[in-house]
Design a protein around this nucleic acid. Structure first.
Lengths: 335, 335
DNA sequence: ACGGCAAATGTAAACGTTTTCATTTTTTCC
DNA sequence: GGAAAAAATGAAAACGTTTACATTTGCCGT
């Protein structure tokens, strides 16, 4: 692959001059600029970004750490960051790592090796104190979907507890008395926090929560199917399910209908996230909107600012919105 | 950020030695290795990948060019490549570019600047001759979802025409006589090729195709909704729709049911792609399986081999599989 | 025609590594 | 104990850029 030297030689100028035309530096005459440009096109020169990054100490790269691209939630996250990257003529460097402290840490490390100075990190398992150290080391690091008080202004997060409360209120307003919860089997905060908000709202209508009406599975379509089966197998009465996320919710609906239950007339379902296809499910899914793409953009922008040394102590807390569609209705027994 | 020199100084050895322990080179005594390792941990040294890439002339990065992460089809593609990257301890560099020759070209260029020697490119709009030049320049470039005869062994593609034929045969076997086609509005080969295969199969049952029964829209959920509305608005009779992709199919079903048509009893729908949520739609979608993730893995592996100079003249053509689920049934009138 | 100044261009150091080759240290063997 | 061989270490060049500083060129006014 040709280098700046090849161009310099062919154009009979110094490499400094070539560098100047590559970088659109003003200090070069129109004549030489034109001839250099021509040579570059002729020999097909492409500047080496690694060499550039080395000397300038900037990577022009935004890093993203997520567990997995297949999950539309994370794809949206990555997409949000990508949009900001494009706007700023930067590139997306993707570092995936399953949800484990070790794997997440390694994913971040890859970005550091690349001297990525702007990064949006989705980490559930790394301990807060470790993250704190990392944040200190890398000014442009922003946490998404996680809250650590000591660096609150560098966290872009959603109030899951409030989400749980909203779901509970909605279902109770429809007179549901027995509400099940389908949860993610992973030991991360989100399902717990959502359940907490949900549970603490119940006594308001003199309801209580029952651990028997909770099923834990993989947070995807298949997991939702299985969780619903488990719930059904218990033989306990319930007229509504609050589901950890939309994928599980749709899986659950699938099982329910296959077993002869109508949603929402027999059983109401409320999901979480409002991923793209939730409004196209049958019945259309009632859910809590998690504006992840918007949050990701915010996080990327914030990371960009921080990397330039700009600071603000604003908080970046988002509240989920109730999106009423067709999967919830008045409780069956009271109809 | 600390460098190899800092480590060398602190450990009282030369940078060559530090480099050796970083790279796990055998030629270093256990004693010095241990002490260097300790120093590295103490001062929190992370090797600079850019410097490394510069001197070794390898980027340890697999590049992917796709239009957009939000589309689950492309997310699966990226995911397949990512899996291979992880297996080979490489990183995913994502370069997105809308579907236009200019944008695609620029996306590829970004990867070249990064000296990405392995890349999986999804390009619909760049002219074959340009791609040929690029392929010549970059041995590790593989095209996915496109076929160019001159570099057939570097293309991983699906036989769309055969897909069209399979869809036609399936629908005809269910006695459908009037079949509409919902197409992508983008001027790329795929929708045309699928339609071609589809159309050429019709005369076998003495059917003919009608341009009036074709609607063109954005290839996503919303586009499917609109396309179905358009079809309905024409007031022409049809009992089945062959839809360009699953997202559109699900959008179409949504519109159809909202307008009082039952799928499949009134109208049968067959999609294309078999994305994850197709089997969770209501009714479950009959579709043609496009094994994109598997193909992406293949493409990544192939690119890896090619970049190492290994060649084979094998072709990499995939045939879509019919996945019969619930959205197709015997034509209404013949019931 | 010439000094002076601005504009254009060039020189060379620096970025942080890897790696070849040379040198030093350690081990082995008689 | 000492020579030879093996193992460990170090010195320095190279990778392809950018950029501060030095030098050359061209132009102006007199």
């Amino acid at each position: 692959m040709s280098t700046i030297k090849d161009v310099a030689r062919a154009a009979r100028v110094s490499i400094a001059t070539v560098s100047r035309v590559v970088n659109n530096d003003a200090k070069v005459s129109d004549k030489t600029r034109a001839s250099v440009l021509k040579v570059m096109a002729d020999i097909g020169y492409t500047p080496n970004a690694n060499a550039r990054a080395l000397v300038t100490q900037k990577s022009s790269t935004i890093g993203v750490v997520i567990p997995d691209l297949t999950d539309p939630f994370f794809a949206s996250l990555a997409n949000g960051v990508d949009q900001v990257a494009r706007q700023h003529h930067m590139q997306l460097l993707l570092s995936t790592g399953q949800i484990s402290a070790e794997s997440e840490l390694q994913a971040i490390n890859v970005l550091i090796e690349r001297r990525c100075d702007v990064m949006v990190v989705h980490s559930k398992k790394i301990k807060a104190e470790v993250l704190l150290k990392l944040a200190e080391k890398i000014p442009g690091l922003v946490l998404i979907d996680r809250y650590i008080a000591a660096i609150a202004h560098r966290c872009v997060w959603l109030d899951n507890e409030e989400g749980g409360r909203i779901a509970a209120r909605h279902l109770m307003s429809l007179s549901h008395q027995h509400i099940a919860y389908i949860s993610s089997k992973y030991e991360i905060d989100d399902p717990l926090t959502r359940l907490k908000g949900f549970t603490e709202q119940l006594p308001q209508q003199h309801l209580t929560s029952s651990p028997d009406l909770i099923a834990y599975e993989e947070p995807n379509l298949r997991g939702g199917e299985i969780a619903a089966q488990k719930l059904l197998a218990k033989g306990l009465p319930f007229t509504a399910i609050f589901v950890y996320n939309d994928a599980m919710a749709i899986g659950a609906i699938s099982t329910l209908e296959d077993n002869g239950f109508k949603v929402p007339s027999d059983i109401s379902i409320i999901g979480f996230d409002d991923v793209l296809f939730s409004r196209y499910s049958r019945p259309k899914l009632t859910t809590l909107r998690y504006p992840i793409e918007q949050m990701a953009k915010k996080a990327a922008l914030l990371a960009l600012q921080l990397s330039k040394g700009e600071v603000s102590d604003e908080e970046h807390k988002y509240i989920p919105n109730l999106v009423k569609r067709e999967s919830t209705a008045i409780a069956a027994t009271t109809k």
